[in-house]
Design a protein around this nucleic acid. Structure first.
Lengths: 239, 239
DNA sequence: CGATAGCTTGAGTAGATTCAAACAGAGTGG
DNA sequence: CCACTCTGTTTGAATCTACTCAAGCTATCG
């Protein structure tokens, strides 16, 4: 499979991308490279001149407090433009790291400038993608601020089920998610221990099974109900 | 004072805006109108054809759970483009309401399309503004997920001190913030009662006073310390 | 086979919530 | 002008969700 196919698949889940636009993007991406587990790809504050496209694996954006506590603010899956926002921000207020081994490619900011000036539609598509990240942030704020631990985990599993489904990374109600319970805890604003207990409850309620890096949804309706999950914030309803 | 001066002041805090760009924006904004307290200006899901600029007062974006619990995901102050993201999203996943009486103006999406195609620099400025909202969302995720109640309130007061300072709405360490404790609770993922107790503690520690809609910072360094507030996420340093 | 990372469980605790009640201030109508 | 109401604030007591500390378990890997 060609390098950035999965990236195009993600864009096409929400937009019509022409052959010409596709060709333009293909022509400006750099050769892929790999990241090790826990490798910090982008450090808060660094001056950036290119944006990263995730082709395989899971990455995350995170912020930290002085005591070492970490909050993951968004999970990234294959196909995501993980730091497109650095194009206009120039440096980031947070860091981005690999949670699993990853393959990535990049798009130089100079190329993005050219694209946005020559392809107004693509400019709006890119802008949309960063707005989508913001929408995910807002949904996570709702989880962190108001959802119970049980609903929080349920909502995260629902979100990933949809997002991974778009790019063909689900098998029915199952998908690979090679994160530790500690990683999940850092997404959810909980402790690893409480995540463990809550996963047990989700399992006992026959809603979802999380084991050795794989999510098996046993009762999607039930899970959606517990989470009060409404996928509207993922903006998939086509235009 | 001219209608959208405060909006331009906010943009100019982070970007150079030319006379021509200013003139273009002035020519496309609609006459101002007012909102009552608690008036929902934009309802989740509505098809939108214009974006709203807040000229005076406080508004918020929020999401709700079925039991009526509400999470405010961002506060908006005078000068903010409260739903610029609706330009590319077309409808929103959340609602936006007035927390105080407000004066607003709007910019039609058709005008924004024209601006972005004819003024590439302004296009990037607008994109930047939505990325700034996302940065604020991320910082709030950190608060909601990892900060204690005390640090959370402190961080919010620090953020507003900076954001209101940009547009000239602070008087030294003081500013007007006509929100109820319930409003604050909905920003912070806490109950009103716990907000009340925590405000008391901030007062007793001589860090900040919040009373009848006014914030008086007594010890800015102390407040910043408690919050671990780093204004980097507000992107004021460079252009 | 020991070392390490990750998962599981138990016991005790703390931070925040719920429920309840009272108080303060602003606005309204008799 | 006072009684009344409404909204918002304050405080107390009891409770609960999630956290901390501690220990043991499991699987993997050199």
């Amino acid at each position: 499979m060609e390098v950035i196919d999965i990236f195009l698949r993600k864009l096409r889940a929400r937009h019509d991308i022409s052959e010409a636009e596709e060709a333009t993007m293909r022509s400006v991406v750099t050769p892929e490279r790999t990241l090790r587990v826990d490798e910090v790809a982008i450090r808060a504050g660094d001056e950036l001149t290119e944006s990263t496209i995730l082709l395989e694996g899971f990455m995350c954006r995170f912020k930290e407090l002085k005591n070492g506590e970490r909050q993951i603010t968004e999970l990234h899956a294959a196909g995501d433009f993980v730091d497109l926002h650095s194009f206009s921000l120039k440096h980031l207020d947070h860091s981005i790291m690999a949670l699993t081994p990853c393959r990535i490619s990049t798009m130089p900011h100079a190329a993005i400038t050219a694209i946005t000036e020559q392809h107004p539609h693509l400019a709006r598509v890119f802008w949309f993608q960063t707005n989508l990240d913001a929408a995910i942030h807002r949904e996570w704020e709702l989880s962190l601020g108001r959802r119970s631990a049980l609903a929080r985990i349920a909502a995260l599993f629902c979100e990933l089920h949809v997002r991974l489904g778009i790019v063909g990374l689900t098998q029915g109600g199952e998908y690979t998610l090679p994160l530790t319970q500690t990683d999940l805890a850092e997404c959810l604003g909980l402790t690893q221990i409480h995540v463990n207990r809550t996963l047990k409850e989700l399992r006992e309620r026959q809603l979802v099974h999380f084991r050795s890096g794989r999510v098996r949804i046993l009762d999607l309706d039930g899970l959606v109900g517990v989470a009060e999950f409404d996928p509207a914030y993922l903006y998939l309803a086509h235009h």
